[in-house]
Amino acid sequence: MEPPDPPRLIAGPVFRQTQRKRMAIVIARNARCGQAAASALLWKSESPIVTEPLDRPPYPESPGGLKKADLLLVLPFIWQLGFASWANGVAWAPLGLPFPMVWQMAGIVFATGILALRYRLDRARRAAENAA
């Protein structure tokens, strides 16, 4: 994976100023929170406690990227879409059901199996990480 870009400054002084102002609003609002508890009616409600991301980092942190295990997630597409054209041509009708439909339904079961496998792999990996 490529190293993180250096931090960028896009927010200009005006934006930072409004942000400061907003922080002040947020602090004042938190103080009013007790009051908010008292107003039970929806129409009298107090509004946002958090309105703007306050913990704005100097630059956005690491993006998700793709892992090798993510290739598994492509398999349902191959089953349901990659083979759709082939399935459409199959004349066999298992139990009298049209094959293209049976193929898509089997694809759902297949996708669930793949996702369950992926979930187990993720859990095992996390358990191993925690143990380490």
Binding site: D70, L73, M101, Q104, G107, I114
Partner: peptide, 30 residues
């Protein structure tokens, strides 16, 4: 039959995408 593709394939994409959105949103109070 499009209906049969709509959920499973969205879930395959969502399995990768949604935890990332969740983590980002949580971290920054979005």
């Amino acid at each position: 039959y499009l209906a049969f593709c709509s959920v499973s394939l969205a879930a395959a994409v969502g399995y990768w995408l949604t935890p990332l959105i969740h983590a980002y949103g949580r971290r920054h109070g979005l």
